[in-house]
Design a protein around this nucleic acid. Structure first.
Length: 430
RNA sequence: GGGGUCGUGGUGUAGCGGUUAACAUGCUAGCCUGUCACGCUGGAGACCGCGGGUUCGAUUCCCGUCGACCCCGCCA
């Protein structure tokens, strides 16, 4: 007796098989019945000659079904399981709060999130996370292939990386600590050890956002690389990753992509880039939108620039570079050739900022001066500054917002749909 | 933090100053031998978010409150 899944069923025609999963739907036809069993990745149609086998069988019960795999042209998948016995491993005690076996889960986001463990059973809901998992796995494998070491830094920290009040304070052994808003300092410090590092981990922002693109805990894909010539090296690394990712998703997640109707961009070796000043010129000339010199891009501008990029520059991605010192954190490397600017960039995708990165300051004296220029005390950053006195190479890095990238890739309306159990201003459970 | 829209059976919606509060789906009883959004005939299920006000009468109008979603500020 072999074990089959929705994926492997068609390869076992003529064999006796076991199928395990959940009761997705029952269609009783009179003298026989169809039982649709959903497993980890698909739905299998099984046929029961004796409809009494499904009596008392509730939707979502966990079952083990035994039978013979039969090639069947009348079945949409070409193969089905002719059942001889059904074992209920764990019965559903009550109906699910919404219809999990409809093509689309027509439920408000709030109810979807309130019953997250059940809404995720819907094929379209869970497809998001298979793709997101693949995305993260690709990030890891791509960077390992480029000589990066995966690190795991503490999420309990003594102070923030960028000052500010957007930190979650926590009680720590009688003193005050915070949840990390970024692994920034640690990944930079590890440049002096490994040269190239990356981290996949949650970060925490205590900002009281109330938008469709912010959550207070998100998965940050961070990388930091040493011995670079400029921020362009970091951008090239991201381009390489994204090109690899797009190709790989098409290979490994074709079913999920089709199910969601997602448009995955074609892999591109090179992505367009414009400076912030050029971006503002585009907004002015093409869209009649005026932004002052010190303004950062607002959400509408990000959408317009992405429209511009898709229509005129041949990509749904767009790097925006050369942000002014005033809007970047103290560790951002000033651009000597363009006074007042930093060697930094954002990556926009389908109207949203999905990455921030840049070259960092690696000279101790410059870093101390930068800290002081922000009214901060270098003494408070002693642990961070130490390696900078001991041969810190030129380096840079970036951070990708996983849920943002996923939600844009899949055209999700709200970032929460790309978070398994999202944490926002109001939601702490489930 | 500011602005907007919205709270009606489990879910998703309709509706109206006086209704047996409607429809779909789900649940349930029964019928049906190839469905794949199966179909058909019945049944149960809603004090219309909560509090107050206007009114002979409020689910409907007004105020407050709580909650949700969207936009903005800021960010990934």
């Amino acid at each position: 007796m072999i074990q089959v899944t929705a994926q492997t069923l068609g390869r076992h025609i003529g064999q006796e098989a076991i199928l395990e999963g959940w009761v997705h739907r029952v269609r009783a036809m009179g003298n026989f019945a169809f039982l649709l069993v959903r497993d980890a990745r698909g739905v299998v149609q099984t046929v029961l000659e004796d409809p009494r086998l499904v009596e008392g069988l509730n939707l979502e019960s966990a079952v083990r079904v035994t039978g013979r795999v039969v090639g069947e042209p009348r079945s949409a998948s070409g193969a089905e399981l002719h059942v001889t016995s059904i074992e209920v491993l764990s019965p559903a005690l009550e109906p699910p709060p919404f219809d999990l076996n409809k093509k689309v889960l027509e439920v408000k986001l709030d109810a979807i999130l309130d019953h997250r463990s059940l809404s995720l059973r819907h094929p379209k809901e869970r497809a998001v996370f298979r793709i997101e998992g693949e995305l993260v796995d690709c990030f890891r494998s791509y960077l390992r292939g480029k000589g990066f070491i995966e690190i795991f830094t503490s999420k309990i920290v003594a102070a923030g990386t960028e000052g500010g009040a957007n930190l979650f304070p926590i009680e720590y052994m009688g003193t005050r600590a915070y949840l990390a808003q970024s692994p920034q300092f640690y990944k930079q410090m590890m440049i002096g050890v490994f040269g190239r590092v990356f981290e996949v981990g949650h970060v925490y922002r205590a900002e009281p956002h109330y938008t469709s693109r912010h959550i207070n805990e998100y998965l940050s894909l961070d990388l930091e690389m040493g011995f670079i010539d400029s921020e362009q090296d970091v951008m090239r690394m991201e381009m390489g990753f994204l090109a690899t990712l797009m190709g790989r998703l098409q290979e490994t997640c074709a079913e999920e992509i089709a199910l969601l109707g997602a448009r995955i961009p074609a892999p591109q070796a090179e992505l367009p880039q414009i400076t912030l000043a050029e971006a503002k010129e585009v907004l002015r000339q093409r869209f009649g939108k005026e932004l002052s010199e010190e303004d950062d891009l607002d959400p509408e501008s990000e959408r317009l620039l992405c429209q511009h990029s898709a229509e005129r520059l041949g990509s749904e991605f767009l790097f925006v570079t050369r942000y002014p010192i005033s809007v970047r954190p103290m560790y951002a490397m000033p651009d000597r050739e363009h006074p007042g600017a930093t060697r930094s960039f954002d990556l926009l995708f389908r109207g949203m900022e999905v990455t921030t990165g840049g070259q960092r300051i690696h000279e101790h004296a410059m870093l101390v001066a930068s800290i002081q220029s922000r009214g901060l005390d270098p003494e408070d950053f002693a642990f961070y500054l130490e390696p900078f006195k001991h041969g810190m190479p030129p380096h840079g890095g970036l951070a990708i917002g996983t849920e943002r990238l996923t939600s844009k890739l899949l055209d999700l309306e709200n970032i929460r749909q790309a978070a398994l159990f999202p944490r926002d201003i109001k939601r702490l459970t489930p």
